[in-house]
Amino acid sequence: MRSAILTTALCALLATLPGTPAQAVMRPGTSAATRPDTLAQVATLPGTIALPNGFRPEGIAIGGRPVAYLGSLANGDIYRADLRTGQGAVVSKGPGTPSVGLKLDSRNRLFVSGGTAGNARVIDVRTGAVLKSYPLATGASFVNDVVLTRDAAWFTDSTNPVLYKLPLGRHGTLPDQAVSVPLTGAIQYTTGNNANGIAPTPDRKSLLIVQSNVGKLFKADPATGVTTEVNLGGESLVNGDGLLLNGRTLYVVQNRLNTVTVIRLTADGSSGQVVNRLTDPRFDVPSTVASFGNRLYLPNARFTTTPAPDTTYTVNAITAPRDH
């Protein structure tokens, strides 16, 4: 109880400091032993983390501990990076096909989008073992990103207008097979990279999907797949990739623009206002974003650089702006 009172008091104090995120002290699911108790502790973490040459990162997932998991487009390897030291190692060998979007749950399970393989897999990050693998699509497909809700994992497909759902049972039990939910309504697939990043709406009743090639954000009904366009007042999210929701703030990574667009959403996600655009000279086509403390972590996918075995890759941290 005393610890809870002190944490609450510290949160209240930080909320009164200019430019300090009120929620930077503790993220849901963190343990007392590993959470960043002060902004000063977070500030000591490395600002740039080097990945193995030739790794080709795309997705990143961070849970309650100062550890990031990254997936390789080259061969599907999963790399574990310590945010405190910058050191890391491959913890799960890939199947030779891409690992794209990633999400980590509270049971140490990593949900992995399989890209051109048209599948998804679930990995135990403690052992590196594949718990289950799911064929999602036949024919041309690109299973791109994944989001976890209270009762399901949802995957986008940038080639086919469909969401793939893994319904989670009691205590998070994995299903035997996935369910396909066709996307209808406002979203219209066309040439190029269509549905990409996915996140929940602030009220957790619907899903948000960014369509990269047309630069629009859509709200999808998870029960029916019917979509409506989110009103952003004419703002473009072209090259929109990974999404991260924090409260009612949505971070949208616009990869080839080397920009993170910050949007303040209504509770139901039907409309939003662009309140900031973040960039950094270290950005080299960042693909997505995850957070720890008051920092945003973005892997440089370097899509404009021809990949080779000696190509260098990094993850860069920037300070999240104060919530609007």
Rank of each mutant, 00 (worst) to 15 (best):
M1T: 13
S3V: 12
T8I: 15
A9F: 12
A15D: 12
T16W: 08
P18G: 00
G19T: 09
P21C: 05
Q23D: 15
R27T: 12
A32Q: 15
A32T: 13
P36R: 11
L39P: 13
Q41C: 09
N53V: 10
G54R: 01
R56Y: 13
I62N: 08
P66I: 01
P66Y: 06
V67M: 09
V67D: 08
D77F: 11
R80F: 08
R80E: 14
L83I: 00
L83T: 04
R84I: 02
Q87M: 14
V90C: 07
V91T: 02
G94F: 05
G96L: 03
G96E: 01
G96S: 00
L102E: 11
L104C: 06
S106I: 15
R107T: 12
L110W: 12
F111Q: 11
S113H: 07
S113A: 14
A117K: 08
R121P: 11
I123F: 01
R126N: 12
V130E: 08
Y134G: 11
T138M: 12
N144M: 03
T149D: 08
P161D: 02
Y164V: 11
Y164R: 09
Y164E: 10
K165L: 11
P167M: 04
R170Y: 10
R170M: 14
T173N: 13
A178K: 03
V179P: 02
G185K: 10
Y189E: 08
A199F: 00
P200L: 12
R204E: 15
L207Y: 07
I209M: 00
I209N: 05
N213D: 13
N213P: 09
D221T: 00
G225Y: 05
G234S: 02
G234K: 01
S236A: 08
L243I: 00
G247W: 06
T249S: 13
L250S: 02
Y251I: 01
Q254V: 06
N255C: 02
R256E: 14
V262R: 08
L265D: 02
N276Q: 11
R277K: 14
R277V: 06
D280M: 01
D280P: 04
P281D: 04
P286V: 00
S291F: 06
F292I: 14
L298P: 01
P299E: 02
A301V: 00
D310R: 13
D310Q: 14
N316G: 02
N316K: 04
A317R: 00
A317M: 01
A317F: 03
I318D: 03
A320Y: 02
P321C: 05
